[in-house]
Lab assay of single mutants.
Amino acid sequence: SEFQINEQVLASWSDSRFYPAKVTAVNKDGTYTVKFYDGVVQTVKHIHVKA
């Protein structure tokens, strides 16, 4: 599913667990740039983002 900029989502971290994050960019290659609550910004594949 498509997510929008500033949408609150759950994004997987390197430990494969999902954490609350905010979408900061929707990228043309189908990835999302997300910002976790601790301030870390990461680009993740769409399969690693869920509502």
Rank of each mutant, 00 (worst) to 15 (best):
F3R: 00
F3N: 03
F3A: 04
Q4Y: 09
Q4A: 08
I5S: 02
I5A: 05
N6H: 10
N6A: 08
N6E: 08
N6C: 13
E7Q: 15
E7G: 06
E7R: 02
Q8S: 13
Q8G: 08
Q8Y: 13
Q8H: 14
V9I: 08
V9D: 02
L10D: 04
L10Q: 07
A11N: 02
A11D: 00
S12A: 14
S12R: 15
S12L: 15
S12T: 11
S12P: 08
S12V: 13
W13L: 12
S14I: 12
D15S: 07
D15F: 01
S16C: 14
R17N: 14
R17F: 13
R17I: 14
R17C: 15
F18N: 02
F18M: 08
P20W: 05
A21D: 01
A21K: 02
A21Y: 04
A21Q: 00
K22A: 08
K22L: 15
K22I: 15
V23T: 02
T24D: 03
A25P: 00
A25S: 10
V26K: 08
V26H: 07
V26E: 01
N27P: 01
N27D: 02
K28Q: 13
D29Y: 01
D29T: 00
G30Q: 01
G30H: 04
T31I: 02
Y32Q: 01
Y32K: 00
Y32G: 02
Y32S: 00
Y32L: 09
V34I: 08
V34K: 00
K35R: 11
F36D: 00
F36W: 06
F36C: 06
F36E: 00
Y37D: 11
D38N: 14
D38W: 15
D38P: 03
D38R: 03
V40P: 08
V40R: 13
V41W: 05
Q42D: 06
V44A: 01
K45L: 14
K45D: 10
H46K: 15
I47P: 09
H48K: 10
H48T: 07
H48C: 15
V49F: 05
K50E: 08
A51P: 12
A51K: 15
